[in-house]
Design a protein around this nucleic acid. Sequence first.
DNA 1: CATGAATGAGCATTCATTCAT
DNA 2: AATGAATGAATGCTCATTCAT
Lengths: 197, 197, 197, 197
Amino acid sequence: MNSRDYIETDERKKQIINSAISVLTEIGYVKTTLSKIAQNINISTGLISYHFSGKEDLMQNTLRYLVLEERAFIQERVEKEKSNMNKLITYIKASLAYQAAYRDNNIALLEIVFNARTPENIPYYLVDIDEKDALDDLLDEILRNGVSAKEFVDIDPKVIAVIVRGAVSGSILKTNDELNLEAYTEKVIKSVKRMVN
Amino acid sequence: MNSRDYIETDERKKQIINSAISVLTEIGYVKTTLSKIAQNINISTGLISYHFSGKEDLMQNTLRYLVLEERAFIQERVEKEKSNMNKLITYIKASLAYQAAYRDNNIALLEIVFNARTPENIPYYLVDIDEKDALDDLLDEILRNGVSAKEFVDIDPKVIAVIVRGAVSGSILKTNDELNLEAYTEKVIKSVKRMVN
Amino acid sequence: MNSRDYIETDERKKQIINSAISVLTEIGYVKTTLSKIAQNINISTGLISYHFSGKEDLMQNTLRYLVLEERAFIQERVEKEKSNMNKLITYIKASLAYQAAYRDNNIALLEIVFNARTPENIPYYLVDIDEKDALDDLLDEILRNGVSAKEFVDIDPKVIAVIVRGAVSGSILKTNDELNLEAYTEKVIKSVKRMVN
Amino acid sequence: MNSRDYIETDERKKQIINSAISVLTEIGYVKTTLSKIAQNINISTGLISYHFSGKEDLMQNTLRYLVLEERAFIQERVEKEKSNMNKLITYIKASLAYQAAYRDNNIALLEIVFNARTPENIPYYLVDIDEKDALDDLLDEILRNGVSAKEFVDIDPKVIAVIVRGAVSGSILKTNDELNLEAYTEKVIKSVKRMVN
DNA sequence: CATGAATGAGCATTCATTCAT
DNA sequence: AATGAATGAATGCTCATTCAT
């Protein structure tokens, strides 16, 4: 950048968040520094401090962005379905499809969730924070409604939710070569059906 | 420590690893430093460098210790069972019991797995490393044997393994107040039974 | 420094190099540290790292600066002379005069040359590096030309060069009180004349 | 060393000094540490501290050893000669021969002389110390006697001594491939003869 | 809005030295 | 005479943040 390029705050913030995502994915939270995020898009480190109140603030905003993206992707598909069973199946399909299609986003999200901590020093992965819960809420609702409507057998929605979320998260760690995505998706759905039917 | 306390290498190493676990649990990987680990047990930072070749080496040894502890706990209980179904049930029970009983160990393990990287910069959570796989192997074996012996229906052991591991890991994030351990255990077992029967 | 003093990069770099020279002269290479160089001019250690990529880089830049200073001083005087004999005499005079006038520079240069090593771990004093050879080249040329032009007897320029450089370097070690500079200069010139005539 | 080997102080000291020489030659003064010197001969670092009062003391003893070795070599040859001219020629021949034959010793000596400092912080290369002057004294004497006996023309012995010493030291830096030792020796002797005749 | 010079705290690591055994 | 556990100070370096321009 030889002649200074001034761009609007909102756009600059998005640009910085995207840079953060790509740096997080590439080198991980520990080695991610503000100056690397800045270099990556040819801006000065100071500019990040100008737009975000600190590293923590940037990470929180990045996390929020990532969760909203993922939720939008899944929710859009789930809402098209009528029955709770189809919603549940679609939830699983969409979740796994998202993980495969936006792998970088998921890595970045993991890096933040398992590293960032609240000001009170509680890790994000142990605390209920708005940024994280959007997806759990959606699943919880499907399961609760399914049980109420007797579409599902009498299961504890919370427990099933944990299991389903685990099956989804687990895929990231394994769906390289060991597990083929489509086959994995089918098998998970089959197993989940057995649990709720 | 004004007058020096000399203890044997092996004992000192264990002491340092235990200090690392408690510091990791308390403040997380990012903020964990050698000097904090040292202060925690009133030794000099240099002594850690004397016993471990560096921070990475200490973290790797800590991870190995944690995994071996957990596996010993679970394996001991699983081996007492005869049928693969009982082994599976016991695996789940023991896993959840361990997570509840040694919460610090599990937090520390998570902190390392989601932060440490191989020299080639690949995160531990994406790569197969000896330190990590001991537990997956045990579960895989139970499931494979169960399928071979027709104790379980024709499921893909790898997929079920991911689901079960997910249900176990997920408990850490939720079994505070929301989920009661014993109830959670029962419900997970019930659901898993439905999947494999 | 309570209120920050901002100065331009080039000036700051010169300032740091000069501080390095004075610290090297005072306490020697081994004890010279970045923080002492920084304290000496009331700046933070980090600022040195900001301007130079590391201690090695600073030392190399300091060496280059010292050699260029010395060569400029000598070359300026040598170039005014026509005959190779007068050039040779002037080379010796100027070299010895420089050593006396800028003693600190010469001590600093010695400290670097006899301590710094290439990345392949070869000492500067055993290897041909651009930073060092500028002065040798000048002398070599005078001697070669003098032999070609039959101004000098048939000597090996390389050997005479080593002897002359030795006589110059040796002066640093002795011209305190034992040897008076002017007398020493005259005597060296007389002896060198005998060698080349 | 599994079973402790006790050896006598004097022999142990020699062994440590020889280890110091080889380590100094290989990695240079700056990177030479007591533990590397110890490892090199499979003893503990503490043992060096037991035999020498500190790093400085070890370096001083190593320097003394090196200078005495060199002087013995040269003196032995010089003493066989009768005339001062032959003594001078032999001095040069022996000096250069020694440098070629015991290159490691000379590198180590340079490393110490240009790095070690007296407790008053004066570099060895700027100060008159017994350890160093033995060789200068020998040369001075030859030159003084030669002048007194009218074997040499009326030169200043001190100045010629500096030049001769410079020609010798300079050889270390150049006699790799550029300068062939024997040819170099002949040429230096020829030039020195012209100076004193 | 944007830069980049500057700070200061903190970190992993190295090292000479001490000392109980 | 010899070891090796242990210290504590020091070092080069990194980094989030500040701020004059």
